[in-house]
Nucleic acid binder design. Structure first.
Lengths: 141, 141
DNA sequence: AGATACTTGACTATTTTAGTCGGGTTTATA
DNA sequence: TATAAACCCGACTAAAATAGTCAAGTATCT
């Protein structure tokens, strides 16, 4: 089990964005340079973040992205959801499987994965961008 | 983030094994049939479980595997460790990265992934095979 | 002897991931 | 109004991980 780069990048980029969000839009080029993430890849990620209304875009020169909500309103859950990073521990839910459909027939470990999913999701539900920004408040860069 | 089949299979197989463990060794063939897991794949998995002394093998006819410890002594952590299913959320720890080595220089989200890792590991540390067997104690098959 | 079952290592198809690439469109500003 | 900065979008691709398969053993019971 591991978190993929897409999710990690999304969070890193948003923390970066949140920290420089004060006055002007922040360009992906800047985030790319500061965080060492490929610009092309960032564009894919921000396209999804925009569709889920986590950020707003400002086109043209001096353009970039701004947060669309307050930092305490953006939970990690929202971010992961936006970039399709799903916490799916249970594959046994698939319709086709006769040994486990989650309802009438459950595999030996079905409840376990359900519990785990909840456990992780609780963590993500509680953590907001604000928390992460505060964690880094004493930093220069 | 998702749990891979190897880890899920390992847990399923061990729950199955624990339930039929009473008298005789349980053959992988039986587990394969009951749980719908490829026999060849199970062999790989049990080879690792044996090396970590979670199970013992009994060769020859009527052979199979038996648990090497009490069910309450086998934590999910042990199982995942054995089959190389690591909860690694943080790739930024890699030595080569200048932006984050975990010590002198930390990336913006380093603490977050550390926390998450602990959160998940706590869950796995507490859950034992015994708990899972009890969950299924009312089942026939 | 033969069948059952573990043991081991190498091989492979599929899927996922982490990008890249090439072409746009929009807008500030010189 | 030309230009450059920046967003926008879809298709493509190399590399890695995953989930197996396969072949050739060895041990042990009956």
């Amino acid at each position: 089990m591991k978190l993929t780069s897409k999710g990690r990048y999304a969070v890193m980029a948003l923390v970066d964005l949140a920290r420089f969000n004060n006055i002007n839009p922040v360009s992906l080029r800047d985030i790319s340079l500061r965080q060492g993430i490929s610009l092309d890849y960032l564009e894919q990620i921000f396209s999804k973040l925009r569709k889920k209304e986590i950020v707003q875009s400002v086109r043209g020169t001096q353009g970039g992205y701004i947060l669309n909500k307050k930092t305490n309103e953006i939970k990690l859950t929202n971010i992961f959801e936006a970039v399709d990073e799903k916490v799916k521990t249970v594959q046994c839910k698939k319709e086709s499987k006769k040994s486990c459909n989650g309802k009438t027939v459950k595999c030996l470990t079905h409840n376990l994965w359900d519990e785990l999913e909840n456990h992780i999701n609780n963590f993500f539900d509680e953590k907001s961008l604000e928390d992460l920004v505060k964690d880094n408040s004493e930093r220069r860069i």
